[in-house]
């Protein structure tokens, strides 16, 4: 429960943070928390799946990807999450709506089906929605990438909520998916910076009717 609460707090902080560095710090914390939750929830898991989850959370989500994002941030001199100032009140309001919606949905769905764990489900949905909010409300592609990672963390929580283990090949593919997507997108951000001289979405609008 404490781990979930801490995860929820990182989401709120990410929702209102202004600096890219803060978002990366939160991603590191989320990686560690996810590992803790996986250990608590999946105690009967087999060794190979455990290794993959260890790799996915502690190694990839808490170390490799944040380090890579820090490198991209430094190389492209990105410090703020958005080029335009978004009011803290508006962000806070959005986060309040997301959390209220997630817990209501989790509660209602738990009532209709006992196959899910409401707490994990609610925080998972909140994480997915926060990820989507980070993508929609900000115009920098690096923030979008971090929003995608928050969304993926939400999916990880949903797998814990439904209690079903995915086949090992799917778990491996999820891990590969995250690593490849982030590495490829990170490299593209570097190229975007070189080609367009900026990493804001407004510059990526040449493809149109």
């Amino acid at each position: 429960m404490l781990l979930l609460l801490a995860f929820g707090l990182t989401l709120v902080y990410m929702g209102i943070a202004d600096r890219v560095r803060r978002l990366i710090d939160m991603l590191i914390i989320q990686g560690v928390l996810l590992f803790g939750m996986a250990i608590v929830q999946l105690h009967h898991i087999d060794v190979l799946n455990l290794v993959i989850i260890l790799l996915e959370t502690l190694v990839v989500k808490a170390v490799v990807l944040p380090l890579f994002l820090l490198r991209v941030k430094k190389k492209n001199e990105i410090s703020r999450v958005s080029t335009q100032a978004v009011s803290g009140f508006s962000k806070g309001l959005w986060m309040a709506v997301i959390i209220a919606f997630s817990f209501t949905a989790g509660h209602l769905l738990h009532e209709s089906s006992d196959a899910i764990q409401a707490k994990y489900f609610s925080v998972g949905i909140a994480s997915i929605l926060t990820g989507i909010m980070l993508i929609v409300k900000h115009d920098k592609v690096l923030t979008h990438l971090m929003g995608y990672l928050v969304l993926e963390n939400g999916i990880f929580l949903l797998t814990l909520a439904v209690g079903g283990e995915m086949p090992i090949i799917v778990n491996g593919a999820i891990l590969l998916d995250i690593v490849l997507a982030v590495l490829v997108l990170g490299l593209i951000i570097n190229r975007l910076s070189t080609s367009f001289g900026a990493t804001a979405l407004s510059h990526l609008s040449e493809l149109k009717d």
Partner: peptide, 24 residues
């Protein structure tokens, strides 16, 4: 480059939604 970025990013979001669909 712009098309590739959009393709990978939105496809990744789409694939994530499919994964959630499989969980459900």
């Amino acid at each position: 480059l712009e098309a590739t970025w959009k393709y990978i990013f939105l496809s990744s979001i789409g694939i994530s939604l499919v994964l959630i669909s499989l969980l459900f």
